[in-house]
Amino acid sequence: MGASAQRADVREGDNQLVVKGVSKRFGGVTAVQDVSLEVPRGSIVSIIGPNGAGKTSLLNMISGFYKPDTGQVILEGQDITQKKPSDVAALGIARTFQNIALFSGLTVLDNLMLGRHVLMKSGVLSSVIYWGMAQKEDIAHREAVEEIIEFLKLQDLRKQPTSALAYGLRKRVELGRALASEPKVLLLDEPMGGMNQDEKEDMARYVLDVNQERGVTVVLIEHDMGVVMDISDRVVVLDRGRGIAVGTPEEVQRNPKVVEAYLGKSKGGGGA
């Protein structure tokens, strides 16, 4: 079920998210230098690269945590480079974290309800009064959340605090929380990191379903090359903060620069 062949529902040229030549320096360290990224609507784009290549920094710039020193991030024609993370979320970019960032004191259900925070409106007064507006809104959004709970098969965990869940399940709940906000673009930072083969396959299935059934554009950071090559429409390779290759999984695999970044030069040393 490789999606590597060009799919009909991915519209080349219609780029939902565009990153134009962003750079980010921390003191003397250049984390990302002049990286560009085009994410077609409805596609799965993977970012790969050795450790420290700047993958997560790039994601942080898209979601607004870092302000790039140069360059632009554009979502559906709108420049979001300088926006706060909470505003970026409201515009339809959701993400998950490399080391899970769930609200540990809350139940699975409340975590997912929080995912819909930007879609809800209740203010302080209607929350305090509750009966009436806030309750109606809570119930309406609960229905949407239940649909995601069903989709991710979390039914029996609804009322469990997330701190009590196993690692793989927590990753799934985090995906659910990101989905709950009905994002246009979903950024996944190593969703399969630390999982066993079965869990990886489950998660890959979910990512594909999110993309194909729900029509969400996915930007994925992942180290498991098997998964990346299987599900990506396009792969971007970073090395030491620079983009060194872009293309379909097949193109990237054949690219000598990529092979060099991962394995080192065949002669004359220069290790990774």
């Binding site: 979601s63 909470s86 960032a101 609200f103 929080l114 906000s181």
Partner: peptide
Amino acid sequence: RAFVAVRDQDIAAEIIGI
């Protein structure tokens, strides 16, 4: 819920739009 989110994980709270 948003209050608890700020308490438990302020970075994640921001990323979901709080």
